[in-house]
Nucleic acid binder design. Sequence first.
DNA 1: GATTATATCAAACACTTTGTTCATTATCAA
DNA 2: TTGATAATGAACAAAGTGTTTGATATAATC
Lengths: 183, 183
Amino acid sequence: MDRRQQKTRQAVFQAFNKLLEEKRFNSITVQEILDEANVGRSTFYSHFETKDALLKEMCTDIFDHIFSYELHSETSHDFSSSDHGLQEKITHLLYHLKDNRRNVLGILSGESGGLFMRYFKEYLATMFDQYPECIRKDVPKEFAVNHLVGSFGEAVTWWIDTKMKMPPEDVADNYLKLIGYKE
Amino acid sequence: MDRRQQKTRQAVFQAFNKLLEEKRFNSITVQEILDEANVGRSTFYSHFETKDALLKEMCTDIFDHIFSYELHSETSHDFSSSDHGLQEKITHLLYHLKDNRRNVLGILSGESGGLFMRYFKEYLATMFDQYPECIRKDVPKEFAVNHLVGSFGEAVTWWIDTKMKMPPEDVADNYLKLIGYKE
DNA sequence: GATTATATCAAACACTTTGTTCATTATCAA
DNA sequence: TTGATAATGAACAAAGTGTTTGATATAATC
């Protein structure tokens, strides 16, 4: 990819991110992104169709990174935990979210949260699919999966809203208790 | 209240509702509401500060109605169920949502869902507060309450998205199983 | 029924935002 | 070096926002 394109893309992402930390998605204007990123109007529109598309691309970037690491840790043998179960997976995921907290916080705060969540849940659903043992059989599968994905999303939102004060291990532990996966 | 005010208020609510069924909240313009409701621009702004305020008032109207009925059924003795437990409460709530399905569907579809949910959860939290036995003690209370409220919100969203095909009794039953309140 | 109060209306207003176009300039890859 | 392409800035129409105005219609009150 052309270096010029990379540069503008990065500048726009960075600017958008900074603005997301200050104000909610809907109140951010393209003009503000342009000013912050120091990019021409026509340049922006040659890269992104709309503001929504920009958010989507940014989410995809972040989640691809976070979840690809998850998959990697599954096949590699470089972490100390005794098994590769759901608890470890969730803990790892939370650590990654914490590493990306500036991004995640920015995106989650305000209106953009809804769109963010939609994309996030898509990734989550594929994760839970790898752990059929946590899906209860006495409830319709759709309903159960929706519960797992949805309540985990809620837990993450709560965790971020409370400034990620609770350690990832505890979040994972408490969550697994509440979904009846543990104890 | 002046009959004229009632009339415009109702017309705006109705118009807004119709539009919410067709398109997402953010893409609805004040102008469209004006045209649909056949109300003057200045009249609208003398009633509602912003579009967000309009949504908020509408949510409050709906939830006040739904949850006040819930509270009423708690004190009255006119329903057949054997106890006044959480399961009955939830089932009743779902029936009420179904009665208001045109409203709820309209509000939940699209972007407005986020705001709707925020208000909805406030009401839910007070409901769960009446049932301390469903809050697990081996997990921080905040976390547990967030889980109950959040996952119920998710269940309702799923239920509405799937056209409310599952009977309210089953939704309540499945939900209570998943939060470990039952069996 | 007459009177006073006020809700509604249409129209115009300045303002912001959006998304497009186009000629010009700068930068890249070969 | 050269041909391709990305970025720029400026201008543009179109659409939306929220406010103000004076005239009109309708309600509440006497």
